[in-house]
Amino acid sequence: MSAESTTTSPNAIPALETESLSVRYGSTPVVDGLTLSVPRGTVFALLGRNGAGKSSLLRVFLGQRPAAGGRVRLLGQDPWTRRTAIMARVGVVPEEPDAPPEMTATQLSALCARLNARWDAAAVAERLRRFEVPADRAFGRLSKGQKGALMLSLALGHSPELLLLDDPTLGLDVVARDAVFQEVIGDLADRGTTVFVSTHDLRAIEGIADQVAILHGRRLALAGPLEALKAERGLSLEQIFASVAGTRASDARPGEARS
């Protein structure tokens, strides 16, 4: 799993990879010794209760905060030092929509066109139409679902290799949630995008995730291919999650810490 090797073909390098990663929020540690690997072209779901941990972790993945310990590689490179280059190949949908509230969808697409080397404005407009997001209303005046849809459209506009979603269904009704994931699936099917989703909404990702990892306390309580885990236990994802998250980290059997 040496991500720096230049003789390895690009597709062998995991889209996201961490090794004993530790993350702090202020002075409080929120993640300790996290080791995971997201193969290209897969859908990886990081599950866990809602808290500061997952969002801080994503900020570290995106090179917006430094790691407190361990290593993280995004598309094979250190995101803290190579952020600008990497973000050209990564799309991000944050938990809180962060677009400037006074700009319309059209203006935002134009802004992103200037911030990115390549931008498919037509595809973005088509997505917005599909989502029924008005193109000329200020971002701040859109509904939550429309904002999320717009953020997703903007995240896909530069055809990223990796799509990072932080709790994309928070506060959305079922219809909006389905629309979001349909869009993600479509993109994934068209281009083989790697998708990393951090969420606590199990129903949403159950059919979609190739791999899951369950974050409990500060550590990974369980990780592995979803189908295999379900077959092994004969349980649904919800049941697996409850069994793991319901127990304390110290009660987890040794074999479950890593897959």
């Binding site: 072209g41 859908v43 994931f181 349909q182 699936i185 994934l188 099917a189 059919g207």
Partner: peptide, 15 residues
């Protein structure tokens, strides 16, 4: 198509 079925059923196209 793989794409349509995946979208329709909200499942992973790889599947």
């Amino acid at each position: 198509s793989v794409r349509d079925l995946a979208r329709d059923q909200r499942i992973n196209p790889n599947t």
